[in-house]
């Protein structure tokens, strides 16, 4: 039977003062030691000093020294499980090759928003088709829609991915702006791609239309849906188009899996 069941321990004045002094001294110590650089030991030293202070608070102020084993076990087990948590996450991250982490001075942001830009991306051209082909494979479109656009990619078969070789039956229509709309909003099992750049979206729209017969043309009205005024030299693009600064799939694959 634990001794605490009948005994309310009263902490003596002298003890609590001694502990207070101890805490002050060790606080001073940790600040003082921080002036020196022990390299990799900085962190463990600081944590050790903190733990000494923590023990003093736990044992005396919180009364665990005078309490029963059960309360001690309860509290210390918390640290044990915390340690377990840290251990496995640490093993995961530290086993990653260091080349996966960006060197200092390089920001994720810069790489994401790169890529060519086009004066009038809603109009088809050789350059934009070439870029569209790049995007088609970088964004893994081919995994559903197939390498040749027949809708026979391994992920796409199960969900009926569209074949781009059909001239008919496109739910949103076959004008470039209709395909752009599908990319913006998604359609059924097709996810939306708001995270790739405006140029990339137009480029891949032209590219997929290129698999099939000549697509119907856009007019001012259909382009106006996306804030484009074809009578202007740059179409008025850049106003009201939101681009999400998020990692593209190819970037993530390269960083996390291939390295």
């Amino acid at each position: 039977m634990s001794k605490d069941q009948h005994h309310h321990h009263i902490l003596a004045n002298s003890t609590s003062l001694k502990v207070l002094l101890f805490l002050f001294v060790f606080t001073f110590l940790t600040v003082f030691i921080a002036r020196f650089d022990f390299g990799a030991l900085n962190f463990p030293i600081a944590m050790l000093i903190a733990s000494a202070k923590a023990m003093a608070v736990m044992l005396y102020f919180m009364g665990l020294k005078y309490d029963d084993n059960q309360n001690r076990a309860i509290f210390f087990s918390g640290f044990a499980f915390f340690g377990l948590f840290v251990f496995f996450v640490a093993v995961d991250f530290f086993a990653r090759p260091s080349s996966q982490m960006p060197p200092r001075g390089q920001s994720f942001f810069a790489e994401v928003t790169g890529g060519p830009s086009f004066e009038r991306p809603w109009e088809v051209s050789e350059e934009i088709l070439a870029y569209g082909r790049e995007v088609y494979f970088d964004q893994a479109c081919h995994t559903c829609h197939g390498d040749e656009g027949f809708g026979d990619g391994i992920a796409g078969i199960a969900i009926g991915a569209r074949s781009f070789h059909d001239g008919e039956g496109w739910k949103n229509g076959r004008r470039p702006s209709d395909v752009y709309k599908t990319l913006m909003e998604g359609l059924g099992a097709m996810p939306a791609y708001p995270t790739i750049s405006v140029a990339a979206r137009w480029a891949v729209s032209h590219f997929v239309l290129d698999f099939g017969p000549e697509p119907p043309a856009d007019d001012a009205e259909s382009l106006a849906r996306f804030g484009i005024d074809p009578s202007l030299a740059d179409g008025g693009l850049g106003s009201g188009e939101e681009e999400r600064a998020t990692i593209p799939v190819d970037f993530a694959i390269e960083r996390y899996i291939l390295r």
Partner: peptide, 17 residues
């Protein structure tokens, strides 16, 4: 408490873990 990573085998966590 020591096995949660088995839900993450294909997540990109390292081979060691």
């Amino acid at each position: 408490f020591a096995v949660w990573g088995h839900h993450m085998f294909t997540s990109g966590q390292t081979a060691l873990v």
